[in-house]
Design a protein around this nucleic acid. Structure first.
Lengths: 105, 105
DNA sequence: TTGACGTAATACCAAAAGGTTTCATATAAA
DNA sequence: TTTATATGAAACCTTTTGGTATTACGTCAA
C-alpha cells in the first residue's frame, strides 16, 4: 500500500501546485479556489480530486460546500523517496557545492 | 529561470523514477538502462530525454555510446518547493503547542 | 571495407490528461 | 415554496504522453 504514484502525479501539474500554495494560507471551498484561476469550477474540481487521490488535501462537507484542507503529511512519502538520494548527495553534492562556492567568491 | 515544471514532470513517471534509482549505483548507457525494462530502447531514450530536460541527469558522449549520469543538483528545486510546507507544518504544530501550553497554565 | 553495434530521428498509434459544456442534485435564502 | 447557489457527474473535445516500428547515421572491430 501507500502507493506513491498518485502523489507524484498530483504534484506534476502547475495549477495543482498553485492550489496547494493557496491552501497553505487557509482552507477553501471549490468555488473560492476556482475564483483564482481562469478556468471553470468543473476543471478545478477535477484538480482537487487528483490532489485528494494523492493524499495532499482532505475534503469535508459543510452544508452545500466542500472545504478543502491542505494535508502536509501527504508529502512525506515524496520527501522520503527523494531522500533516497541523500547518500549520493553526501558524496557528490558537497563536492559540487564547494566548487560553486569557490566560483562565487 | 530555473523552471521547476520539467523536473516535476520528469518525476511523475514510475519508469523514470526507477531509472533514477538505477543511476544512483553507477552511470549507464541507454542500452544498459533498457536491458532492465520490458520496452524498446527508443522508449527508454525518450524517458532519458525527459529526465535530462528536468535536469535530473546529464548525458555525455563516449564513442558511439551515451553515458547517463545522475545529477543530484536537479532535485534541489523540488526539495525546496516541498519544504515550503515544512514551514506550514511547523506553524500549525507550534500554534497547537502554544494552545496546549496556555491550557496547562 | 565490410558488417555489427549503439544511438538519433521520424512517423505513427492508443490512452491519458486537461479542459469545456450540460444537466442533475442538494442546500441556503427570500 | 420558489429561487439562487455550490457542487457532482457525465459526455465530449483537443493535446500530451508513453509506447512501437522504421530508417538513417556514426563508430567499433574484423
Amino acid at each position: 500500500m501507500t502507493n506513491i504514484q498518485p502523489t507524484f502525479r498530483a504534484l506534476a501539474d502547475p495549477t495543482r501546485r498553485d492550489i496547494l500554495l493557496m491552501l497553505r494560507d487557509h482552507d477553501m471551498t471549490i468555488g473560492e479556489v476556482a475564483e483564482n484561476f481562469d478556468m471553470t469550477r468543473a476543471a478545478i474540481k477535477k484538480h482537487l480530486t487528483v490532489l485528494s487521490d494523492g493524499g495532499l488535501i482532505t475534503v469535508r462537507a459543510q452544508g452545500r460546500e466542500r472545504i478543502n484542507t491542505l494535508n502536509p503529511l501527504g508529502m512525506a512519502p515524496v520527501l522520503d523517496w527523494l531522500t533516497f538520494f541523500d547518500a549520493f548527495w553526501d558524496d557528490r553534492l558537497n563536492a559540487l557545492k564547494s566548487v560553486i562556492e569557490k566560483d562565487n567568491t
